[in-house]
Amino acid sequence: MPLHPQIAQVIANLPAPPEGSLDPAAMRAGEEAQVAPVEERLPLHAVEDTTAGDVPVRIYTPVDADSYGLLVYFHGGAFFLGSLDTHDHVARSLAKETGLKVVSVGYRRAPEAAFPAGLQDCLGVVRWVAEHGGALKWDGSTLALAGDSSGGTFVAAVAAMAHDEGFDRITHQVLFYPSLDLDFDVDRYASLRENAEGYGVETAGLKPFNAFYVDSGADPADPLVSPIKREDLTGLPPALIVTAEFDPMRDEGELYGARLNEAGVHAKVSRHAGANHGFVQNFSWIPEYQKVFEETAEFLHSAPGK
């Protein structure tokens, strides 16, 4: 199907990108200016800002209950954008639809924080969550990871780091249109050419947007930077990989899902027709894309491998 007409209308009215080098501070300020006021956000039983060690986190409790499964969420933003606030609506929707208590992570970002600071923050919060299960009313079962775009990159990398370190409490991983290969050779995946222009995120912009992260020491050949380059995928948690039809990074996400299945890891790949990169953050108000949260809930409440 073609690009969803409501998405196409928004993209057609986007201003031209600024000329010259990217300015992280200005771009972050522009993002934050679009955040809805608290009183207009999806209501939940409780939302609390606190810290996990030194890392800011925001904890979303969907309803009043005796115990909860837990979901640790990593926001996207090309490793230098995004925040607890810009992705607050995503975390709220995840909490509401899954019924899990969501812990959103305010990890350190490039270029101020060099690789692997953000990854270390994310893994540290996952460990903190497990260690503070009593205070969080964890039911001891589900401990899932979820992330969008570069947050999906962090999900795959953190799952691998935890596995390699013998931390086996992670039960599921959910990757929304992840960036899994930071080698942006346009001939590597067909979608990089098929969806190169006109869909919001463009292939030519991937390298400069990710340059802050790469220049901070993130080597695209490193499997913690490009998780698709990890040779042995056995033993990783079951995965839901959500891709978008008109995303330049569509094919790397789908290939990663195929490789997980080949390694004996249950992975469901779900391509959303008519969608573009970022649709969970930007267009989940469209009814057919709001269903991605229901799909996530179904996956997280299923037995591994189902």
Rank of each mutant, 00 (worst) to 15 (best):
G140C: 12
P178W: 04
L180M: 03
V158Q: 07
V174F: 02
G134M: 12
V158P: 02
E165H: 10
D187F: 07
G147I: 06
A162D: 08
E165S: 13
D139I: 08
D185Y: 07
S191F: 04
G134V: 14
A160W: 10
G152Q: 09
I170F: 07
L175T: 01
E194V: 07
L182Q: 03
D187H: 11
G133C: 14
L143T: 08
T171A: 12
R193I: 07
A196K: 08
D148S: 12
L136C: 08
D181I: 04
L192D: 04
V158F: 02
M161Q: 15
A157I: 04
L145H: 03
N195K: 06
G166C: 05
T171H: 10
V129G: 13
E194W: 07
N195T: 12
D168A: 15
K137G: 11
Y189S: 06
E194P: 10
L192W: 10
W138Q: 11
H172Y: 11
D168M: 01
D139A: 05
S141K: 15
K137S: 12
A196E: 11
A160R: 15
A135P: 02
M161W: 11
H172N: 05
T142P: 08
F154L: 15
Y177F: 15
L136K: 07
A160H: 14
L145N: 00
A196W: 08
G166D: 02
K137W: 01
L182G: 01
E131C: 01
D148A: 09
F167E: 13
G152L: 04
G140I: 06
G140P: 11
V186F: 07
T171R: 08
G134S: 15
A190D: 13
Y189W: 12
V129K: 03
W128N: 00
H172I: 06
S179H: 04
D168Y: 05
Y177I: 11
A144I: 01
A160I: 08
G147F: 03
D185T: 08
R193M: 13
S191K: 05
S150H: 04
W138D: 10
G133F: 01
L180A: 05
G133P: 01
L180F: 03
L143C: 13
L192K: 06
L192P: 09
G152C: 03
H163Y: 13
H132V: 06
S141N: 15
V155T: 06
P178G: 01
D187N: 14
Y177E: 14
R188G: 10
